[in-house]
Amino acid sequence: MKLSAITRLAALPVAIALAATLAACSSDAAAPDSTPTNALEGSDQASLSKYTTADVTPLDEIDISKLGLITDGTLLVGTLSDAPPNIFINEAGEFTGFDNELLKAMAQKLGLKIEFASTDFSALLGQVQNKSFDVGSSSISTTDARRENVGFTNGYDFGYMALVTRDDASIKSFDDLDENARIAVVRGTVQDDYVTNTLQLEAVSFPDYNTAYANVRNGQVDAWVAPSNQAEGLVVEGDGTTIAESVINTQNFMAFAVNSDNQPLIDALNSALDAVIADGTWGTLVAEWYPGRAQPLDWTPGSAAALVPSRVG
């Protein structure tokens, strides 16, 4: 997972993030999802099969001239710059991380160039639906509410939700969160939805992961409800913070966002995803970016017909 690079990346923005704390906090931001959904309920993946295609169009039958791209031959991707190990900019100034490296491999299967641009997560889905980007890449949980506003590919990952606190905090688990706690979230995420709608608590929302994390470190908030992957990428041993609890969330798989009316592009990306699963690229990237991570036995990426090499036979 290139931990040394990620560690340095996490440290660079802290001074800026601390200065921006008061400006970044917002208690009057729009609620993320109006219908409460408990992201920690978990789910057997059979209940998500209605969102997973039975199979995909063969790659050699995909016509890339009919994908409705903003620029012919190029995928323009909206992503984040600060959320290792999934989506971030490395020290060479390149967009990388598990999600973005997977999408690069998929674009190569389709014979497409790929360009990344940084944005805030709270704006990303709207920008995809409004065709400012062809694709949104940001470990996006595919909630029912989001499906009403944007399209998604088949799933390529699952997630955990983490609780990040200072080492000396009295909050030790999700059960300790109450109206007396100052709880950080990143605006528009499923964690925002969980705190605001499921727990019905007032969250302290921030525009990005680094700022939320910095405010845990400096004691401005008591805890941060975060995606576990991003928490693990930012929490550094010796910085006074800890991941107090991490709970698996397979209720909604993660997928790439696409304009809901652009079915040809969704179909093409689904075909490419199955292709990089079958040739071992997906598994290689999982091992590289998530070393030692356990995968739920009831979860597989791609279409229902996807062949995951480690599970074949």
Rank of each mutant, 00 (worst) to 15 (best):
S205N: 10
S228Y: 14
S228W: 10
V216W: 15
V225Q: 13
A214N: 04
V225L: 10
E237T: 08
N215I: 03
N215K: 08
Q230E: 07
V216C: 13
V216K: 07
P227N: 09
Y213I: 01
R217T: 09
A212K: 01
V204P: 00
E232D: 13
A212T: 01
N229G: 05
Q220S: 13
V221N: 07
S205I: 02
D222T: 05
P207F: 05
S205H: 09
P227C: 03
V204C: 13
V216Y: 15
E237G: 07
N218P: 00
N215C: 06
V204H: 13
A214M: 04
W224H: 11
A226R: 09
N215W: 14
R217D: 02
Q220M: 11
V236I: 12
Q230T: 15
V236E: 11
V216G: 04
P207Q: 04
V236Q: 15
V216D: 15
N215D: 11
V225S: 02
G219E: 07
P207V: 04
V216Q: 13
N218S: 14
V235Y: 12
P207E: 04
N215E: 03
V235R: 03
N215L: 07
E232K: 08
Y209C: 01
L234H: 06
P227D: 10
G219Q: 10
S205E: 13
V216P: 08
Q220P: 00
V221Y: 09
V221F: 11
V216A: 10
A231E: 05
P227I: 14
G219T: 08
T211K: 01
T211A: 02
A223C: 13
E237I: 04
N229I: 05
V236D: 10
F206T: 01
R217G: 05
E232P: 00
A223H: 05
E232Q: 14
A231C: 12
E237F: 08
A212E: 07
E232F: 06
N218M: 10
V235C: 09
S205Y: 10
Y213V: 02
G219K: 09
V221M: 08
Y209R: 00
G233A: 02
Q220V: 06
N218F: 06
A226P: 02
Q230K: 08
N215F: 11
V216S: 12
N229Y: 15
N218L: 07
V236K: 15
V235H: 09
L234D: 01
T211P: 04
N218R: 12
A212Q: 05
D208P: 00
F206G: 00
Y209G: 00
S228R: 08
Y213A: 00
N215H: 11
E237V: 06
E232H: 13
G219P: 09
G233L: 05
N229K: 12
P227R: 12
Y209Q: 07
N210K: 03
V216M: 14
E237S: 11
E237K: 15
E237Y: 06
S228H: 11
P207Y: 07
V204G: 00
P207L: 03
D208I: 00
A226C: 14
T211I: 05
